[in-house]
Simulated assay, not measured.
Amino acid sequence: MTIPVFYAISDDFTKYAAVSLNSLVKNAADDKDYTVYFLSQDLSAQHKQDLQEIGSSNVHVKFFKINDEIVAPIQNRTENYLRADFFTMSIFYRLFIPDLFPQYDKAIYIDSDTIVNDDIGKLYDTELGKHLFAACTDSSIQFVTKMVAYIEDVLVLDPKKYINSGMLVLNCKAFRDENFIDHFMRLLSKYHFDCIAPDQDYLNEIGDKRILHLDPKWDAMPNDNTEPLTNPSLIHYNLFFKPWHFKNVQYEEYFWKSAKETKFYNDLLTELNTYTDKQRDEDRHKLDHMLAKEDKTINDPYNWANVKKQGPVSL
């Protein structure tokens, strides 16, 4: 039996994904077998080779090209923008994993801006039961007033149960049996919900009441409001807490330890040292831009809250 793990990347994110993959390989159990898939539309031959070279005798690295037909219904529209400032199809790839890989009844998805400090196989051992997927509460937004208001008033969900989609244990069989993708596509095309976090909001809404919440150590996120977790199993450098752009980021030592073991270490150091204060300031203000959506969506007659008032048939 192999443990399937999925990343979704664009070609320019390869060096960060390589650091994550290296950490996964280093912590993989010797007595287990893993297959890591990179989902992409534009991965170069050189970058495929770079990633394959990080694999090991029991961590097999493979690639899957997402063709345009699969994701055609997802349009480059403002409601699908990531961080409210640009469109990237890759954030939606994770939703298609169960249908694209029918040989798996369960799978793990992780973002590429992560570090794995424990055996990822332990996540795979999670008993999902009738849950649609397992994930961790999004700790990065618990102290962001506008985001909490958005979750409560626009999504009509409990912020303490709102999960981050950067780490998922997917019940692939349930996704297929319940036609998750058909449901997602219908909602997407019918309502064009204006989302702060597009793929994540849909997962929280469709999975509401059927999400298994895991120990936060499996999606530890840097923030300025809490002390770091001791021995986090998986670190997710979410939002703008990127150690390759900012210094003194919480948990940065884990990233640089793994980075040093990859061919991209010097490139990443150069990126950090040449990233300007102006760029850092712009990054911080992107969060304000993203949160400005809350003011707009609260008055949208077709936001999640208003559609929910029409009853379950609407959703």
Rank of each mutant, 00 (worst) to 15 (best):
A17F: 03
M147A: 14
F38N: 01
E178F: 11
V307K: 07
K130R: 13
L268E: 04
R83Q: 11
R83S: 12
F184P: 01
L157W: 01
A28H: 06
V71R: 05
F38Q: 00
S20P: 10
G166S: 06
D119N: 15
D85Y: 15
R77A: 15
A135E: 00
D215A: 05
D111C: 09
D182C: 07
K209R: 13
C136F: 09
N248A: 14
H131R: 12
I151D: 00
R210L: 03
I120C: 11
A29Y: 03
D153C: 10
S314C: 10
D105H: 14
Y254D: 02
I235V: 15
Y7P: 04
T137Q: 14
S90V: 13
S40T: 12
Q103Y: 04
D199C: 12
S314K: 12
L214S: 01
F101R: 05
A292E: 14
P232Y: 01
D50V: 02
E178P: 01
L287S: 03
Y191Q: 10
D30M: 09
E152L: 11
E69Q: 13
H213T: 03
K286T: 13
I66Y: 02
Q142A: 11
D99C: 09
E205R: 10
Q200V: 04
D277Y: 12
F86I: 11
S139Y: 09
I108T: 07
A18R: 01
L39K: 01
V71M: 08
L187S: 06
D125L: 10
K257A: 15
N303K: 10
L95A: 06
L170W: 02
Q41P: 02
D105V: 05
E205V: 15
S189C: 12
I108K: 03
N67F: 01
T270H: 15
S233A: 14
I110L: 11
N223R: 07
V307G: 05
D68R: 09
N204L: 06
L170D: 01
I115V: 15
F246Q: 08
H60Q: 10
T126C: 13
D113G: 04
P301K: 06
F6W: 06
I66M: 13
H289G: 10
H131S: 14
T137G: 12
A29L: 12
D99T: 13
D153V: 07
K296H: 12
Q49P: 00
Q200N: 09
D42K: 13
D42I: 12
D300V: 05
K161R: 14
D224M: 08
T270A: 15
I97E: 00
E53V: 04
E53W: 02
S44K: 02
K242T: 04
S314W: 13
Y93W: 10
D295T: 14
K122R: 15
D125I: 07
F101G: 04
V313M: 12
N299F: 13
S139D: 09
M221P: 00
T274F: 11
Y124A: 04
S165L: 00
K217R: 12
S20K: 03
L39E: 02
F63L: 08
N266I: 08
A107V: 05
K296P: 00
S314R: 12
Y302A: 09
P301V: 09
D85R: 13
I9F: 06
A17K: 01
L188D: 07
C172A: 09
V71W: 08
M221S: 04
L168P: 01
I66D: 01
T226K: 11
Y251Q: 09
D215G: 04
I235M: 08
P228W: 02
D224W: 00
G166C: 05
I196F: 08
D158N: 15
V307H: 05
